[in-house]
């Protein structure tokens, strides 16, 4: 059953709570980029591909590759809501022996689809899967969430060139354009704009949306799906403008929250803003964060 916009909004709110709790317990990680992409991922996993424990290992499944691997708490939150992993396992993030590694590890946890985290690599992997998807009967689709910072990597542009050549209409790349990276604002570190023009020039069908506007996300995914059904078409590139740290006031728009975890007081404040119930807040207060 496809969720409504109101249900998606509620799902994403709960996943933001999961992300904050995961990162607090882990004592390290990347909140900014996890919170910026969660509305996109929540919609993908619950509405577009409808991931379930039953279809998670189906060879013909549609796949989601998280190229910006540091945002993996968002991916784990989606897998937990889909029932592919237990929610309790989320609190093992980054701990010794956990399948929930600091960046996606497909050998330990196949549901993450690819091992990423060295930036710029996921789009090529997704492209390879899309090639296989085109050869399969029936075919399957591949979605790849990329970051604007990693778009500075040369490999991304190699892939930007090759995916249209192969007519990979079953490939949809979603750019989480949150405008920030470790050392500063992306426009200052190494500007990637005008990214829509560049991708169009490379032969992609480019859609530009507000990455926190659920009707807009759904509409873009509808268009990508229509494009995938057309033969020999271009791959789709959804340029989603987002806010780093979206949903937590003191993180929103602040790139210094790229790669540090909230302490207990900050996590409690974040959970209160996100409307977490007293049980969640008590659980955070009772949790001793791992020392990096």
């Amino acid at each position: 059953m496809k969720p409504s916009v109101a249900q998606l909004r509620e799902l994403a709110r709960r996943m933001r709570i999961d992300i904050v709790r995961m990162l607090h317990a882990a004592g390290s990680g990347h909140p900014g980029g996890s919170l910026s992409c969660i509305d996109l991922l929540a919609t993908l996993f619950s509405h577009e591909i409808e991931r379930t424990p039953r279809n998670a290992a189906d060879p013909g499944r549609d796949r989601v590759v998280l190229s910006k691997g540091h945002a993996v708490p968002a991916l784990y939150a989606c897998l937990a809501r889909a029932g592919v992993i237990e929610r309790e396992e989320l609190w093992s993030l980054r701990r010794l022996g956990s399948r929930l590694q600091g960046h996606p590890d497909v050998a330990r946890l196949p549901a993450v689809e690819a091992s990423t985290g060295s930036l710029g690599q996921g789009m090529s992997i997704a492209q390879g899967m899309a090639l296989a998807g085109k050869m399969a009967r029936p075919g399957f689709r591949v979605f790849c969430l990329v970051g604007d910072g990693e778009t500075q990597e040369g490999q991304m542009w190699e892939c930007a060139m090759s995916a249209p050549k192969f007519g990979l209409s079953n490939l949809t790349v979603i750019l989480d354009a949150n405008g920030g990276q470790i050392d500063g604002f992306t426009k200052d570190v190494m500007n990637i704009e005008p990214i829509a023009d560049k991708m169009r020039a490379f032969g992609w069908r480019v859609l530009e949306i507000d990455g926190h506007d659920f009707p807009a996300i759904l509409s873009a995914l509808d268009q990508a799906r229509a494009g995938a059904a057309a033969a020999g078409g271009a791959p789709t590139y959804i340029l989603a403008r987002t806010v780093k740290g979206q949903g937590v006031s003191f993180m929103a728009g602040d790139y210094t929250w790229h790669g540090k975890a909230p302490d207990t007081a900050q996590a409690v404040r974040a959970l209160e803003e996100l409307g977490a119930d007293q049980g969640e807040i008590a659980a955070v207060k009772a949790t001793k964060p791992q020392k990096g």
């Binding site: 497909v106 690819a114 090529s124 997704a126 492209q127 390879g128 296989a132 490999q155």
Partner: peptide
């Protein structure tokens, strides 16, 4: 680089 990545994706898809 892109070739190696595409090969990885093809392999992960069987």
């Amino acid at each position: 680089a892109n070739m190696i990545g595409a090969a990885a994706g093809l392999a992960l898809a069987g």
